[in-house]
């Protein structure tokens, strides 16, 4: 006979505080936002106590909103791809370094996280501005000055800078688990350094890269400070759009609708991506 646990309520009591916290700070505001998004809105009298689907219809049919959604998706995807392209080799080099250099460079990579996003973004706007260092350098070399600030390029550059640690760290963790002799084994079997990386090391860091991409994509798609400061007034992304609807237009229900649509879209993309790649990686890596 299996022994009965002394009190069957113990698991509930233990999980209780966490569950309450989660319910109070995540589920409740989320539910309120969902309800808000169905409220009718009138420009002269504000939020009405009647319910409507009109906000959803507006957002999903108006080209203005769709363009912003499309831009958000494009910028987030581009940031993720660039972060993977830079972060994976960076993590590999880091994992092959010896102490004390490894600790020093790990700090260099994590360092930016210790500085406020707003401060870092202002830094980028000074660098990329029409009289910024980048343009001065271009002119010195005899090129025409480029307009970088207030373009998608500026947003992507700054986002990559902010997001890189979130790609490097999961990949680095995956590499730590890798037996360094596995790579040596590939060499002794006749593989060049490049082939060994491609055929043996890369497939094993897929899972790390996957979690890194999910974090980077999710954070980029909902980034606020970077597009707000580097995109200017016209180049909006989803998060800045929501901000404007709430605080400029005062149309809270429409802002809530956009927020919910972005959340659902983000969730769908990430789940699909996860299923597609993780399922395959799990099958071979176990």
């Amino acid at each position: 006979m299996t022994p009965r646990s002394p009190t069957s309520s113990a698991p509930w009591l233990l999980a209780g505080p966490g569950a309450l916290f989660f319910a109070g700070l995540v589920l409740l505001p989320l539910a309120l936002t969902v309800i808000l998004s169905f409220h009718a809105y009138d420009h002269s009298s504000g939020i009405q106590n009647t319910f409507t689907l009109s906000h959803y219809v507006t957002v999903l049919t108006d080209g203005y909103y769709l363009e912003i959604f499309w831009r958000t998706l494009r910028i987030a995807a581009l940031t993720t791809i660039i972060c993977a392209a830079i972060g994976v080799p960076e993590a590999y080099i880091l994992s092959r370094m010896r102490d004390p250099w490894r600790s020093v460079f790990l700090l260099v990579i994590i360092g930016p996280l210790l500085v406020s996003v707003v401060v870092r973004t202002f830094g980028w706007s000074m660098l990329l501005g029409s009289q910024g260092l980048v343009n001065q350098a271009l002119q010195l070399l005899g090129f025409a000055p480029a307009r970088i600030l207030y373009t998608e390029t500026a947003i992507v550059i700054a986002l990559v800078h902010v997001m890189l640690p979130f790609m490097v760290i999961p990949v680095w963790t995956a590499l730590q688990k890798l037996d360094p002799m596995v790579e040596a084994a590939a060499w002794t079997l006749g593989a060049s350094h490049f082939t060994a990386l491609r055929r043996v090391v890369m497939p094993q860091v897929t899972l790390g890269m996957l979690s890194g991409s999910l974090i980077v994509f999710g954070l980029s798609a909902s980034a606020f400070a970077v597009p707000a400061l580097l995109g200017g007034r016209r180049l909006k992304m989803a998060a800045t759009l929501v901000y404007d609807e709430y605080l400029q237009e005062l149309n809270w229900p429409l802002g809530a609708t956009i927020a919910i649509i972005v959340l659902v879209a983000n969730l769908c993309i990430m789940l699909a991506y996860n299923r597609m790649i993780e399922a395959r990686a799990r099958r071979t890596l176990g």
Partner: peptide, 14 residues
């Protein structure tokens, strides 16, 4: 072109 068997075996897990 030498054959090496490592202490950890170093098989390719994937």
């Amino acid at each position: 072109g030498l054959g090496v068997v490592f202490q950890s075996y170093a098989l390719f897990p994937h």
